[in-house]
């Protein structure tokens, strides 16, 4: 089950905890992976760890021209992009009444607009191939909202609407578009929280623990697989029951 041999996957934010886990999971299932991100060093390290079938494709997602060029670079490196995982994201938290235009725009640019550009860039070859998988990593806060994250929540909710609209348009061409919405996931960022903060977070989660990056990667692997061909336009919530949507 979940054999991705011969498929080429482009993963953004592959230098981060969740993106790295996604790239590893797809790679382990046989896919060739294009690792994109801003920081070259962790991408090179991951590519070295994966060995064959891994390509490093650095890209600054706040640069529109660079984002538009990325699908072409990925196709040059791998031959095609059959699976696109828009995982890269940034936060610029601020209470809403103090939020600057810059804080708003930078988050929307990287999280939502770059996702749109990359989806658009891979659509034509996917339509020709009559096969494609688009997986956009949203967030629980896109559905629930979160104080201090109006920009981030808007971008993540926007990704869901984008995903559903794309799913409608290209379903008849063998292309699926889905979102994965992680809840609290243990990453380098959450490692910095103290025990008291962690306990408060865990108290809100029926599963009473944070999720792991591998648990997000497993959801992505499923949606990328041929077995998930009839699943499109959906949002798979992976949050330990924190929000049952």
């Amino acid at each position: 089950m979940f054999d991705l041999t011969g498929k080429n996957a482009l993963v953004t934010g592959a230098s981060g905890g969740i993106g790295g886990a996604i790239a590893k999971a797809l790679h382990a299932a046989g896919a060739t992976v294009g690792l994109s991100g801003t920081r070259v060093e962790p991408l090179e390290a991951l590519a070295a760890e994966l060995g064959e079938r891994a390509h490093v494709l650095p890209c600054n997602l706040s640069d529109a021209d660079a984002v538009d060029a990325l699908p072409k670079q990925a196709i040059e490196a791998m031959g095609s992009v059959d699976i696109l995982v828009n995982n890269a994201g940034i936060t610029r938290d601020q209470i809403f009444m103090r939020m600057s235009d810059e804080e708003w725009q930078s988050v929307l640019d990287v999280n939502l607009t770059s996702t749109m550009r990359l989806c658009r860039g891979v659509m034509r070859p996917m339509m020709k191939a009559r096969w494609g998988r688009i997986i956009n990593i949203s967030s629980i806060v896109g559905a629930t909202g979160n104080p201090g994250q109006a920009n981030y929540a808007a971008s993540k909710a926007g990704m869901v609407g984008l995903t559903k609209s794309i799913a409608y348009e290209v379903a008849s061409r063998g292309i699926t578009a889905n979102a994965v919405a992680p809840g609290f996931i243990a990453t380098a960022m959450t490692d910095k929280l103290n025990d008291d903060q962690k306990a408060k977070i865990n108290a809100q989660i029926p599963a009473a623990r944070m999720g792991t990056a591998d648990e997000i990667a497993a959801a992505v692997l499923y949606l990328a697989s041929p077995e998930a061909g009839y699943v499109t336009g959906s949002t798979l919530h992976v949050n330990g029951g924190m929000a049952m949507l």
């Binding site: 034509r124 339509m127 020709k128 348009e169 290209v170 008849s172 061409r173």
Partner: peptide
């Protein structure tokens, strides 16, 4: 509309 895009392609 999708057919027309594909025809152009």
């Amino acid at each position: 509309s999708l057919d027309t895009v594909e025809l152009v392609m």
